[in-house]
Each structure stands twice: as C-alpha cells, then as structure tokens.
Simulated scan of single mutants.
Amino acid sequence: MKFIHTSDWHIGRQFHNVSLLDDQHYVLEQLIEHIRRESVDALIIAGDIYDRSVPPASAVQLLDDVLNTICNDLEVPVVMIPGNHDGAERLRFGARQLSRAGLHIIGELTQITEPVILQGKAGPVCFYGIPYNDPESVRNHFGVDVSTHDQAHAFLVEQIKAAASDQTSNVLISHCFIDGAEASESERPLSIGGADRVNYEPFADFDYVALGHLHSPQYKGKEHIRYSGSILKYSFSEQRQQKGVTLIELDVDGLKSTAHLSLQPQRDMRTIEGELKTILEQGETDPNNDDYLLIRLTDRHAILDPIGKLREVYPNVLHLEKPGMLETGERQVNRDKLKQGELEMFRDFFEQVFGSTLTPEQDEAIRHTISLIHKQDGDRA
C-alpha cells in the first residue's frame, strides 16, 4: 500500500495577526496534486487539522473543499485523528455517516481498538488511531492508574497491540511528543516541565507510526516512527525546515520506503539582519519581497518609524528586533529569557522579588496553576 502521511495543518491560524488561510490553501492544492500524481491508496492526517477547537467559518470551508476533492473527486480515503488544537467533539461530528464517503475520523478513545481497514495491492492494512488525550481523560475513561502522558499513551498502545492481528500490516496514528524529538516555537505545550514526553519503544512493533504535533519532519527511535511535520512554517524558528508531506510504501514485510514530498509556500518565512539603509536598498530588487519577515536592525542609533520604512519595500514585515541597540551581553540575556517557559520565568521573578528560591511545595503549586491556565485557555479556544 502507498499512502501519504501529513499533520499539523492548523487551518485558520494567524501569525502576528496575519491570516495564513490563503497560504494554507496554496499548499493544500499542492498536496492534492501529490495525491493525484502518486496514485496513493490513502491520506493520513495525524491531528491539528484546525488551529483552534472552534475554527472560523472560512477555515471550515477550506477543509470541506479539500476533503471533498480528495474523497469524492479523487476517491482516495482519508483517515484522521484530532490533535490538541482540535475540538474532538466538533471534528468528529457526522463521522459515522462520513465514513461511507471515505472520510474516517477516529475521534473517541472508545475507537482505538477498532481499525479502519483499507485494501492495498498486497492485502488489507489496518489503521489504528489514538485521538489526542491527557492522563486525566485516560484515567477517567478506563479506570487505570496513570499520572503521566507516557503512562497514559503506553496503556493505550498496549490496548491496540492486544487487539491487532499479526496477519495484516498495522499502522498507528498518534498526536504526541516523543522524548528527544526536535520541537519548534509554534507548538502549543501539551504540559509543562517536560511531563508531555512519551517514549518511542511501545511503537516499535507497528509497521508504520504516523505522528503529529511536532512541526519538523523527522523520525525518532526507529525509521518507521515518523513526524511528517507541518504544512507551513508557523514560527521564525522553523525558517530552515523543509516543509512537506511523507510518502509511505508498505509491502508484506512492513515498511518498504519513505519519501519527502515538498510543499512550496506562497510566501516564505525568513529573517533579514543588517543596517536599515542596506536592507531598504536590498528590498528594492528582492524578488521575494512579499515573504513574511523578521527584521533585525544592527543600527546602533535611534531610528524614526523603522517598520514603516521597511514595509515600503517589504510589506510583510511581521516583527522587528533592534539588537544593535543593546550591548552583546544584555542582548544574549534577553534572548535567553524569551526562550524560557512560564514556570522558569516565574521562578526568576520570585527570586528577584523575595531573594530566595521557591520551596518544592511552592514550585509544585505554581506548576499546577500553570497547567490549569493552559487547560482553561484551550477550553475557551
């Protein structure tokens, strides 16, 4: 069987208050061309289809158009799971009816041992999906004593392995953070303090594992345990990543081949550094002046309305930094602070105000509070 693995579409996302919907439409049209050209048997979407649980109408319309083309026009079945950005209840609406048209949405924990069985040239392939979950939901649903993402995920994988047959090829779809994999700034944390990490070992027995959540294309632990990465660059930390989807071919022995199919953005995302005068001169002849840009000005003197001047030649300047106005040491300290998470920033704040570090009890209380805030923000979204 030959299928395409993709994830992290984040349809409806805004970046620095700029809608990326047109950019997403542009690359999803390329995905459709890949499906058509490669004559694949299926498309797998490993979560974060939307950017928030209640997506705007324009995002819903774009997804509807794309899936209609793939399922109805090309007659290629789609298997998808919700990610942490998706509202699982909304995403799976009408799933039983849609499955008859080739759109299979695995949106509930009750479905994890019920594979979507698709016919390939060498026989059937079973696709098992694990919708995004947290330890609390697994604990409440199954009545098991799990307290970490790793424990919860390992339990779910074991349930699937116990139900799976070794007479067919088995593919697992999951939305999670494998320990040691490369993260990007644009990924919403699943938890804090590294508690969201899971081990790759439980995945090893599957013929292929289609992962979502991390935006960089990569594999971890074993070559068949892979992230396809996001379809677009969603932060400046991703500017050197090669975005695309993953073409997978299975045979009777398991994974036969993998290939990266690139997606070329309508507008790239990049950083330009230099003095204002030089950048303005460069912008006059830059063939890609419509890209989304982070500008770092190295001028050491004050400049009146620099972003206004820059947008005359680079209309999509989204962020401006002035490291030239800082001493080298101060600049590095500020950059390091920006990389800190909420917990580390609060620890620094507490120490500066009270002159002492948090006690273990205080640290755990703040960790719990931050987790609740993340959960409430997700529910409101």
Rank of each mutant, 00 (worst) to 15 (best):
S53K: 06
V76A: 05
Y50E: 00
L98F: 14
R92K: 14
R52P: 03
D73L: 08
N72L: 15
P56E: 01
G47C: 04
R52F: 12
E38F: 02
Q61T: 13
R92D: 07
D65K: 08
L74H: 08
G83K: 08
V76S: 04
R96G: 08
D41A: 10
A57H: 10
P55C: 02
A95E: 12
A46P: 02
P82D: 00
A42S: 06
E75H: 12
L62H: 09
L91D: 01
D41K: 13
L62V: 10
I49H: 02
G87R: 07
D41Y: 09
V54D: 01
Y50R: 06
Q97I: 15
A46I: 01
L62W: 11
E89Q: 13
S99W: 01
G47M: 03
I49Y: 02
V79K: 13
A42N: 02
I81L: 11
S39Y: 04
A46H: 02
A46T: 00
R96M: 08
L43K: 03
C71N: 10
N84K: 09
L74Q: 12
L74N: 05
D73P: 01
Q61L: 11
P77H: 15
V66L: 07
D41C: 05
I70P: 08
S39W: 01
V60N: 02
R90P: 09
Y50M: 03
V78I: 08
N68I: 04
S39Q: 12
N72M: 14
I45W: 05
Q61C: 05
V66S: 05
E38N: 04
I81D: 07
D41P: 00
L62P: 14
P56I: 05
E75N: 12
D64I: 07
V40H: 13
V78N: 03
P56A: 03
N84Q: 09
D65Y: 07
D65T: 11
L67N: 00
S99A: 15
V79N: 10
D65I: 06
R90F: 14
S39H: 12
I70S: 03
A95L: 06
Q97R: 10
E38R: 08
I49K: 02
V40K: 09
M80I: 10
P55T: 01
N84V: 11
D73K: 11
M80K: 10
S39A: 06
D64P: 11
M80D: 04
P77N: 15
N68W: 13
N72S: 11
H85P: 11
V76D: 05
L63F: 14
I45C: 01
F93G: 01
